[in-house]
Amino acid sequence: MNISLDFDGTYTEDPQHWNQFIDSFLEAGHTVQIITMRAEHETNRSLKDLAKKIPVHFTDRKAKLPYAIEKGFHIDVWIDDNPMWIYQDAKQERVDFYNEYQIYKHAAEALGLHVKNYNEWLNS
């Protein structure tokens, strides 16, 4: 099975458990890779560390499924907190909204407030 794991908002929410997931699936003979809408110049230490273990792909704000098809690999299972990015390119305003959401989320968590998921926040 070929599994695509999103980075921002998915892996970043619980790296310890996602690392266990990755190790478990690799041991079982599956393929796990990160497909992120980031541009390669937006990489960070965590992505660099992941790239030592599994492939990391940067779509540069392009939809993930067409990217995978263009690169010649088939994904059986997509794990993504925002499935729309599998099929849809990110327009700059959506990227700006997502960045604003991240600021809201971290502030709400720091204050101990209920944190809406991205789609709830976007529609509020």
Rank of each mutant, 00 (worst) to 15 (best):
T36C: 02
H74E: 13
W78P: 08
L50S: 06
A39H: 11
I22S: 01
N119L: 15
N117I: 07
V56M: 04
F97L: 13
S4H: 03
K48R: 13
Q92P: 05
V32N: 02
T31Y: 00
K105H: 12
A68I: 04
P55I: 04
E40Y: 12
F73A: 00
Y87R: 14
T31E: 04
L113R: 14
K105N: 10
S4T: 05
L113V: 03
G9A: 09
R61F: 09
Q33Y: 00
D8C: 09
W85Q: 08
I103R: 08
D89R: 03
A107N: 14
A107D: 15
V32S: 02
F97H: 11
D96Y: 07
E109C: 05
L113M: 13
W121Q: 07
A68F: 01
A28I: 01
D23Y: 03
E93I: 15
A68C: 13
Y98T: 03
N2C: 03
V115E: 06
M37N: 09
L26T: 05
W18M: 07
F97G: 00
F58G: 00
D96S: 10
K91R: 08
I86L: 10
E42L: 15
N82F: 12
W121G: 09
Y104I: 07
Y11K: 06
I103G: 00
T36F: 03
H114T: 14
W121I: 12
H17T: 15
V115F: 06
